[in-house]
Design a protein around this nucleic acid. Sequence first.
DNA 1: CCGGATTCTTGATCTGCGTCAAGGTCTCCA
DNA 2: TGGAGACCTTGACGCAGATCAAGAATCCGG
Lengths: 248, 248
Amino acid sequence: MSVQDAKLIHQQCADCPIRHRAVCARCEADELDRLEQAKYYRSFEAGQTVVWSGDRMDWVGSVVSGIATLTQTLEDGRRQMVGLLLPSDFVGRPGRATAAYDVTATTDLVMCCFRKRPFEDILASTPHIAQRLLEMTLDELDAAREWMLLLGRKTAREKIASLIAIIARRDASLKLRRAAAAVSFDLPLTREAMADYLGLTLETVSRQMSALKRDGVIELVGKRGVLIPDFDRLVEEAGDDSDGGFLV
Amino acid sequence: MSVQDAKLIHQQCADCPIRHRAVCARCEADELDRLEQAKYYRSFEAGQTVVWSGDRMDWVGSVVSGIATLTQTLEDGRRQMVGLLLPSDFVGRPGRATAAYDVTATTDLVMCCFRKRPFEDILASTPHIAQRLLEMTLDELDAAREWMLLLGRKTAREKIASLIAIIARRDASLKLRRAAAAVSFDLPLTREAMADYLGLTLETVSRQMSALKRDGVIELVGKRGVLIPDFDRLVEEAGDDSDGGFLV
DNA sequence: CCGGATTCTTGATCTGCGTCAAGGTCTCCA
DNA sequence: TGGAGACCTTGACGCAGATCAAGAATCCGG
């Protein structure tokens, strides 16, 4: 997808906190212009690193198209993914100079960015954006906490089922919603990335995928394709308490 | 500690987002009064449940004194703690009607509460509070992500060392700070609560505490008391990448 | 359509932590 | 001060998932 196409999508995206014109109906015209001037787009190829943890990061932004991940690494190389960024998700923290996590594009990626200083000014002067950002941050916090339950207490099989359910839910968010029909989609993550997300090894991920396939919970088409014949069955395997909620 | 004492502390607490008079220098007097009227204090005994997950929750609040925990539970009883609430920490989510987690007092606890509706009005009309809340929520999100790394990738020993380091850091936050002197304090959590926090069993927690003691990393005085002869050594055992950061 | 690189699957074996079980210790209250 | 109950420690054993090691499927450029 080209940056131009992505910008077009961006115009239509209702959730992105950075789409200022839509968010803020009350702002002064010159304020709007200031904001639009500060805005710029950046694109990355699949696999590229957007920023490394600890790097200076003088911008904030949101994902326009594609998928990115946030990961932390221990010095001996153990890696844990701590966030999955989808279109409209926000990256960067007002009031912090350096990146706290590695940000990596797992697919081709387009982001909409602001230099941090102007953005902070805007944040201070237009309450809507701070409030919208607060809401989004609270959602992320809920997602992170749901994920803590997964990491701390679920079995490998439950973890895999949870991840597939989560991806299915929002990949197919419109189609699905309790439609009993089978759902299919492509996993946007390698086995290794799944392992990093779930706190498992790549081998265990593969084994449990195979097990779920053997038990008829999912079907695999090629490497990345997944078909879910019975979504409720999958959710059951995920062992979710709160009906699965809506992670990320 | 009595509610009166706690209120007194509350007056002095600079971090609490709810201490409106201190936070907002620009508000109108009648707005202040409206806020102060809506405010009330509640106290709980150690072990009491503040709210159950799923319960209607028509208030928000912040901890004045004592410690509370947020936990999630799978239907078969597996429990994971997802938050530790210390004085000044905020509970409840503007724009949500029911509690998402069990909130439990682990020590005697005093909270400062607002009915949700008035609080939301105030939030909408006074940007400072939304911004302060955003900042706090971002901090919590960082803490949650650090915790995801711990849950997903650290060994039992590293988990214990991390938890002790975290508690030490902010329990002794003033005294410590690279002071080479030994630090000692009381754990505010039972072994079971520690296990729920770390995604371990109570037995494993106990075993690893003993192991750390045997290896001279910590000393135990009574059940709850901990003494850390060499803080850097402890941090090393925690395996932390980013110098341990500052969790919660 | 071929060959190399990546990514994924599967098997064998090992091990850290969970589980089950039996005491021991601290605390609190009479 | 002593006894009951909550809380903690330690041991023996088993198993889920990690680790080590081959292959097999898929992708991709030539």
